[in-house]
């Protein structure tokens, strides 16, 4: 079948459709660069959306739990090997994405006789100052892009994802507290889940109410934290 170009293209298209279908149950995740650090936020069941990778690196993802776990392990192994063989300063997100993660995603997606990775992810690297922060949006097919605006959103539908990203960028102010930042992300989360148009969404006056029994999972890559490890899990809360 794969000897024929048309069949191969058809198989890839089917695969893309299959992955998107599988991702439909996923809930959005966010990463926001702030003066205090990078806030990573998702809504799940505890240790299911937001994870630590290395001293200055974290990631948030939606998708199949087994595949999220695979990606997590690949990222952690690659980062620790690089940190051990060279130094912690040599572990950079650009290299992790280019040489370890993105190729793995692409191979997994295009090898049509093996199961694809059902994951949409955001990776984050904290810098000494907010301008040095790096946020990368990595798609299930290995495609990825860097964001210079200090905000990333991952969702299974590209259009609402772009709307949520624009909405957050327009409303986040430099002086916003972490709590306010989280509240804005949660308002966007709720709008995406309820398929409400983002353009009409007003910034919340109070924290989001119900999240269907799920927990807010959040972590901060804390710029001020002493020592080499900057990742700090924030306690889960209901809303």
């Amino acid at each position: 079948m794969t000897e024929e170009p048309y069949r191969w293209l058809e198989a890839i298209a089917n695969r893309r459709e299959y992955v998107r279908e599988q991702l439909k149950g996923g809930t959005p995740v966010f990463a926001v660069s702030r003066p205090e650090g990078i806030l990573l936020l998702g809504v799940g069941h505890g240790h299911s959306k937001v994870f630590e990778i290395y001293n200055r690196h974290g990631f948030a993802a939606l998708g199949h739990p087994v595949d999220i776990e695979k990606v997590r392990q690949v990222a952690i192994e690659a980062a620790h090997l690089e940190g051990f063989n060279r130094s912690a300063e040599d572990v950079t997100l650009r290299r992790l994405i280019s040489f370890a993660l993105s190729p793995s995603f692409k191979n997994s997606f295009e090898q049509i006789f093996s199961p694809p990775l059902i994951v949409e992810a955001i990776f984050a690297e904290i810098g000494d100052r907010p301008e040095g922060d790096v946020l990368v949006r990595l798609h299930f097919d290995g495609n990825h892009h860097y964001d210079a605006g200090g905000v990333q959103v991952a969702f299974h539908q590209p259009k609402p994802e772009a709307e949520a990203l624009a909405w957050l960028k327009a409303r986040l102010q430099p002086q916003d507290s972490l709590g306010r930042t989280a509240a804005l992300c949660l308002a966007a989360w709720q709008a995406l889940m309820e398929e409400k148009p983002l353009a009409e969404l007003a910034p919340p006056d109070e924290p989001v109410g119900s999240m269907a029994g799920r927990l807010v999972e959040a972590a901060l890559l804390d710029r001020q934290r002493p020592g080499p490890v900057h990742y700090r899990e924030l306690p889960p809360w209901n809303s």
């Binding site: 240790h47 994870f51 630590e52 990778i53 290395y54 997590r72 392990q73 952690i76 192994e77 620790h80 940190g83 051990f84 490890v229």
Partner: peptide, 16 residues
């Protein structure tokens, strides 16, 4: 010491 530093952190992060 360097091996142990990496080993402990690797375990903590990978095993949660």
């Amino acid at each position: 010491a360097r091996t142990l530093q990496t080993t402990f952190e690797f375990y903590r992060r990978s095993q949660l």
